[in-house]
Design a binder for these strands. Structure first.
Length: 507
RNA sequence: GGUCCCUUCGUCUAGUGGUUAGGACGCAAGGUUUUCAUCCUUGAAACAGGAGUUCGAUUCUCCUAGGGACUGCCA
């Protein structure tokens, strides 16, 4: 093979929200392209007019943008190989469909969908399988079984027809898959797939795919494992069209499986397990399908976790930036077997990426959450809060429950902690403590601590007991960062106020 | 049913013709944190089964079992 510039494509169908498995396919294409200094193309495969869904194409673009996968050529971006939407390429496909007829690789068929359905049903009733293939084509309504005159008549009468591929007999087709190695098929087990339909003047996936990949000079086809069985057909099509010399290399990715149970990951699994299956939220008739973005995941975390589902660099590193992934990616290291999705590990990836972000960046994100709670504090203060609590959360949204007390007094107190810590002499002591603190001149963590320690000693109380009660008063529960730092940050007045509040409410 | 693909801890995986089969998530215990979380240490946890090749197989081959995909005028 000559050294062509690497060109890969991600070719989704706009039939709904992009699934996380599709996102990973896109990612592996993207990584491969960037790794080899090639082009990443987005092609919209909308040859099924009946399954078109409004907004799906925009959803795909928005997802790619959010995840940071830059598209070099596509419907939006343009390029020298357009159009990039198959419904706009009708004339192109017709030409090659006709070529297949002329060269004898294809034939016209007039069987209706109903007729074929009936044949399938009948075969099934007899515990057999119906296939439109070398054994049956002579007995069906097509240009192979009908006279040339009848074919002509039917077409002139406006009867709908399709073009089918005449799968040759007894031919061994070999492919050398980049992830699976040698795979061999025999054409005898293959059927005559529909390639083109007169009804909507559009090709089916197979023809459109091969024609476009050839015309767009695609060098590597990286797609899901569900396409592996179509490889022999595709290879035969390249052969039939005379393009075998420049045929792209194939790589079939393993599937992403359900966390538990059988089968591949589906929307239902996400609902059941409480994790997203889509990159972005998607409005459904009966609610919304959760997206990673809206669920609080960082795009870099999603990229990271998806990259490691079916691939690894062979080292023990697990956390990567997109640039590192591009640097390290090797399609040969992609696994062959399906990978179960693990929601726990997904959360872990987000936590890891969160901790690695700067306090300022997180503070900016946190500001919008704070605004929803009616607070618009100083950025420096938020940044300080973030630095104290960021290691205890997985998502930005969880920052609030871990740090609300920095912005407002507790509204309630954790009953368990109250029972355990707010007893005996504690209330009286806390009241006396407010006097002492009132008199404290220098309000910083160190001074507060020294002051309280001294007071505890004078009263002969347990240090742990007092500190936990103090925490309860300031925070409302038994959690949070260093208490003295909290007291320093919320200020003297507020600290005393909260102690008084607690004494009053917990009396 | 047919065709094709796959099979290392519960999960994601590394790995080799001779290893104490390594890491991560999760789980458990201990430590740090006078709290919670983080963090640190430790632990339990795997080569699907059976033949064959070989001095020796988790690693190579075959068979079985299990899992998966496809089997549309869908992609």
């Amino acid at each position: 093979m000559t050294t062509r510039k690497v060109r890969v494509r991600f070719a989704p169908s706009p039939t709904g929200p992009l699934h996380i498995g599709g996102v990973r396919t896109a990612l592996f294409n993207y990584l491969f392209a960037k790794k080899h200094g090639g082009d990443f193309i987005l092609r919209i495969e909308d040859t099924d007019s009946t399954r078109f869904v409004e907004g799906a194409e925009e959803y795909i673009n928005e997802s790619m943008e959010w995840l940071g996968m830059t598209i070099d050529e596509g419907v939006k971006q343009g390029g020298d190989y357009g159009p990039y939407k198959q419904s706009e390429r009708r004339a192109i496909y017709k030409k090659y469909a006709d070529q297949l007829i002329e060269t004898g690789w294809g034939y016209y068929a007039f069987d209706t969908a109903e007729e074929l359905d009936a044949l399938r049903a009948k075969a099934e009733a007899e515990k057999k399988t119906f296939a439109y293939d070398m054994h049956t084509r002579q007995h069906l309504k097509n240009s192979l079984s009908l006279s040339a005159e009848e074919v002509k008549q039917r077409m002139e009468a406006g009867e709908p027809w399709v073009i089918r591929f005449k799968m040759p007999e007894d031919t061994t087709v070999k492919t050398n898959d980049m992830v699976r190695g040698a795979v061999t098929f025999n054409t005898n087990t293959l059927d005559d797939k529909v390639l083109y339909k007169s009804a909507d003047q559009l090709p089916t996936y197979h023809l459109a795919n091969i024609v476009d990949d050839h015309l767009m000079e695609i060098t590597h086809v990286i797609r899901g494992e569900e396409w592996l069985p179509s490889v022999p057909l595709h290879i035969m099509l390249y052969r039939a069209l005379g393009w075998e010399e420049s045929m792209p290399l194939f790589a079939h990715l393993p599937l992403i499986l359900k966390p538990t149970g059988k089968g591949k990951l589906s929307k239902r699994d996400g609902d059941k397990g409480g994790f997203p299956v889509f990159p972005l939220n998607w409005q459904l008739e009966d609610g919304i399908a959760a997206g990673y973005r809206e669920s609080g995941y960082f795009p870099e975390a999603v990229i990271n976790l998806l990259a490691l589902l079916g691939w690894n660099p062979g080292t023990e590193q697990e956390l990567f930036t997109m640039d590192e992934l591009i640097e390290l990616f090797d399609i040969e290291r992609v696994n062959k077997s399906g990978a179960r999705f693990d929601p726990d590990k997904a959360r872990w990836f987000n936590q890891q990426h969160l901790v690695r972000k700067s306090d300022d960046e997180l503070a900016t994100l946190y500001q919008s959450v704070l605004k929803e709670h009616g607070h618009t504090p100083d950025t420096t203060y938020v940044s300080q809060v973030v630095s104290l609590v960021k290691e205890r959360v997985n998502f930005v949204s969880e920052l609030w429950e871990q740090s609300a007390f920095f912005f407002e007094a507790p509204l309630s107190y954790d009953a368990k902690v109250v029972k355990k810590r707010w007893k005996g002499d504690v209330p009286a002591f806390m009241t006396s403590l407010t006097m002492i603190l009132e008199a404290l001149e220098k309000w910083d963590a160190e001074s507060i601590k020294a002051c309280i320690a001294e007071h505890i000693e004078e009263n002969g109380l347990g240090f742990g007991l007092v500190m936990n009660a103090f925490r309860l008063a300031l925070v409302g529960g038994g959690f949070g960062p260093d208490l003295m730092t909290i007291a320093e940050m919320i200020g003297k007045e507020e600290t005393i106020q909260r102690i008084n509040n607690a004494v009053e409410k917990l009396a």
